[in-house]
Simulated scan of single mutants.
Amino acid sequence: MTPKGKSVLVVEDDAKIRRLVKVYLEREGYEALEAEDGEEALKMFKQFDPCLLILDLMLPKLSGEEVCIIIRTELRSTVPIIMLSAKVEEAERIQGLKMGADDYVTKPFSPQELVTRVEVILRRTVQNCRKINYRGLTLKPLKGEIHYNGETLALTHHEFRLLYFFMSHPDQILTREQIVDELYPHQEKIVTERTVDVHVGKLREKLRYDGNHEIIETVRGMGYRFVAY
């Protein structure tokens, strides 16, 4: 039985690597879908709506970078993405994260460790997949959609995840450190807490406030709070 009824799309042009990852995923009960190039990956993504992508950067037809950008911008999906690459430089990892990847694994890698990373990400992202409603905001996590008073809001990948994190913890104070851990897992040394302030500022600009009360409230010296009522 597939954990939580979810599937993983493995996008890798090297058939041996792709099938090895598939074997390890299926051992843990996941449904593993396969794609060998970027164009096929997008077709399968639209058709099967997987819960996570394992995405190689160096792909025929469309690169992994192009696939990631299309998923995040054109399709506006927040589906978790783990990038695979032989490039080990820090700049490459940062670039991958900026494009919207949730994790970055360098080759060669341990298939078991990769599956563990899949489990960790899915445990965090699918445990609250229900639709959330607060103060005119309706957020649909799996669809990557957010509506405010009936209108669709255009949010970036990180803005959507940030709002989802806030709405999943209504009226709770969330520290900048907690938000960094949520938005950039495993990348504590790369991302500063100042990045959180930038994301919150941009998100506030896109949200309209009711009366004099902000939806995202600054708690001085502590962090931020989503005011649900």
Rank of each mutant, 00 (worst) to 15 (best):
Y104R: 01
K22D: 04
E90C: 08
R72D: 07
T106M: 00
M99W: 14
I121C: 08
C51A: 15
I71R: 14
G64Y: 05
E31M: 12
K107T: 02
K46G: 07
S77P: 05
E89D: 09
E66H: 08
L33N: 04
E89G: 10
L52E: 04
L84Q: 02
G100T: 04
D37T: 03
E28Y: 11
P80K: 06
I54P: 00
P108G: 06
R123T: 11
A86T: 02
E66Y: 05
E90L: 14
Q112W: 12
R19D: 15
V67I: 01
R19P: 03
P50V: 08
I69C: 07
K16H: 13
P111L: 06
L114Q: 05
R19G: 14
L52T: 07
D103G: 03
C68I: 03
L59N: 00
A91E: 11
F109Y: 07
L84D: 01
T78Q: 14
K87T: 02
L25G: 03
T73K: 15
V67N: 03
I81S: 03
F109C: 02
F45G: 00
P108C: 08
Y104H: 02
R130D: 13
G29H: 12
I69D: 09
T73L: 07
R123G: 13
L84H: 01
E31V: 05
T73F: 06
I94E: 15
C68M: 09
A15N: 14
V79W: 08
T73Y: 11
V115R: 11
E28S: 11
V115L: 04
D49R: 15
I81K: 04
E92K: 00
A101I: 02
L114T: 02
T106D: 02
G100H: 06
L53F: 10
T116Q: 14
P111G: 09
K43C: 00
V67R: 03
R124I: 12
V115Q: 07
E113C: 00
I69T: 11
E39R: 09
R76E: 15
I81F: 10
R124F: 13
L114W: 01
G100A: 08
K22A: 10
K16V: 14
C51N: 11
M83P: 03
M44N: 01
E31P: 06
L57Y: 01
R124G: 07
K16Q: 12
V79Y: 09
L84Y: 03
R117H: 11
N128I: 08
P80W: 01
E65G: 09
R72G: 00
Q95F: 06
F45H: 04
C68H: 05
V115K: 12
E66V: 02
D102E: 12
P80M: 10
E113Y: 03
T78A: 15
L75A: 12
